[in-house]
Nucleic acid binder design. Structure first.
Length: 428
RNA sequence: GGAGAGAUGGCCGAGUCGGUCGAAGGCGCUCCCCUGCUAAGGGAGUAUGGGGUCAAAAGCUCCAUCGAGGGUUCGAAUCCCUCUCUCUCCGCCA
């Protein structure tokens, strides 16, 4: 939610900033709506004050056992006027909500200009891409005899699911454990376990609703949806709360499955584990004081990068341009890992500073002792998307014979196993 | 799933037959006094959001909010309805 005070006082200025996202919106409608709101609210509140004063006089008269009928004369008209004014005000407020809750966050000043992915700016590249002296395979080919089974998943559930078995299942668990341990032991995050089904208010708070309902799996009977990311339940920890200033920053790390309908991406990334309806993710969330959020955004990104560094996976950091920013974000860095199988970098983490945008929708505040409550800032980032990390490990650690070397940091998590060995080709 | 009880300010908790209740009291917190330090004590203050006034802040003032939504009424924390959540007992169960 954009600060309503800003929206009311300078809708044109807001429209100008949102234009950087490639977004046109009719700010004059907002301005007119606001002008009417002010007039009607004043009228409605004036009538309410009148009614309250009358009720008070009636009460006092009754207490003195006086006849109250003369006082009640004319109140019918008042009731009708009041009801009409309130009705009108409600209509205007509803319109205001409808117009403003779909407005995305304002990009930070240092977000690069641009309209599409193509305009994102590479900030840095880390890790050398190892030259292979054999034909590289992608994770689907490699996984085929390691326990990656898309056919079984299709039978069980449908397209865009996968079954992992044996060492691959364990590798996924190892990656998860490694990430959780790194963030809890070295980066100061508290591990948190949360619901995987969330209600409408939670989805509204983080910005998935009302605009992006189609991206979710809904459990209609229960009025709930499967989480598309742990960001939703974790960030909602502070919804409708006033946190003590001394308790900030809040830092949480959660491992959850994520569920996405991928409506609108039919035909895209249909091969392999890159784009699934269900995938595992380790998510970092921070709730901080406004003055800290820009710095924390850099730190949180570094925390996610550290996972890639320790896995020795080559990656680059991209600053998203204004046109490519997510709905709720004021600034985002994407981490893209090198995938030899497709010869390109692929997003494996997205680290965003939401400023006060989510916090406003969530009504999430903090209070310094003796001060007024103030809106917090929220941030999050994948640390990392586990499924895609698994893909990256397979493709970057493959050997000429199809074996996968286990990254050093994962060996303890694999019970000492140093190599994944493909099963012999099936005799058929 | 069955039966019952409840939801009030940062926390606990009172609200009588609906009337001057944004709400007693306590705890906590803030400031001041007292005190060699600590402990104890005395005093004052202490919900949130919005509108108006103001250059702005302070102040003043108005409106809303006693789980949420609707209703009855001149007037609802108090009465009625629906929903959500919590608790107790029984049943079932990972």
């Amino acid at each position: 939610m954009i600060d309503p005070k800003l929206l009311r006082s300078d809708p044109e200025g807001v429209a100008k900033i949102l234009k950087r996202r490639g977004m046109q919106f009719d700010w004059q409608v907002l301005r007119d709506c606001e002008a009417r709101r002010k007039a009607v609210q004043q009228r409605a509140e004036g009538l309410q004050a009148e009614r309250n004063a009358l009720a008070k006089r009636v009460g006092q008269a009754k207490a003195r056992a006086e006849d109250v009928t003369p006082l009640l004369a004319g109140q019918e008209q008042l009731s009708r006027d009041l009801a009409a004014a309130q009705q009108e005000l409600e209509t205007i407020l509803e319109k205001w909500r409808r117009l403003t809750e779909v407005l995305p966050n304002l990009p930070a000043a240092d977000v690069p200009d641009g309209t599409t992915e193509e305009d994102n700016v590479e900030i840095r590249r880390v890790g050398a891409i190892a030259a292979k002296d054999f034909p590289v395979r992608d994770h689907v080919d490699l996984g085929d005899r390691l326990g990656m089974d898309f056919a079984a998943a299709a039978r069980i559930a449908g397209a865009r699911f996968v079954v992992l078995s044996g060492p691959l299942a364990r590798l996924q668990r190892a990656l998860t454990q490694f990430m959780l341990d790194l963030h809890t032991r070295e980066h100061g995050y508290t591990e948190i376990y949360v619901p995987y089904l969330v209600n409408r208010d939670s989805l509204f708070g983080t910005g998935q609703l009302p605009k992006f309902a189609d991206d979710l799996f809904h459990v209609k009977d229960a009025g709930l949806a499967l989480i598309p990311t742990a960001e939703v339940p974790v960030t909602n920890m502070v919804r409708d709360a006033i946190v003590a200033g001394a308790d900030l920053p809040l830092r949480w790390v959660a491992h959850t499955p994520c569920f996405r309908s991928e409506a609108g991406s039919a035909g895209r990334d249909t091969r392999g584990m890159i784009r699934q309806h269900q995938f595992e993710k380790v998510e970092l969330v921070q709730v901080v004081e406004p003055a800290d959020s820009a710095r924390v955004h850099e730190e949180l990104t570094a925390h996610a990068e550290e996972v890639l560094k320790r896995l020795d996976l080559p990656y680059r950091v991209m600053a998203l341009c204004a046109g490519d920013l997510g709905f709720a974000s004021r600034k985002t860095y994407d981490l893209e890992v090198w995938l030899p199988g497709s010869g390109r970098y692929r997003e494996i983490s997205s680290c965003s500073n939401f400023g006060d945008f989510q916090a406003r929708r969530l009504n999430a505040r903090y209070r310094q002792t003796g001060q007024k409550p103030e809106t917090v800032h929220t941030l999050n980032g994948s640390g990392l998307a586990v499924g895609r990390t698994l893909v990256a490990v397979l493709e970057n650690y493959q050997q000429a014979d199809g074996r996968i070397r286990v990254p050093d940091v994962l060996v303890p998590y694999m019970g000492g196993l140093k190599e994944l060995v493909p099963a012999a080709p099936r005799a058929s």
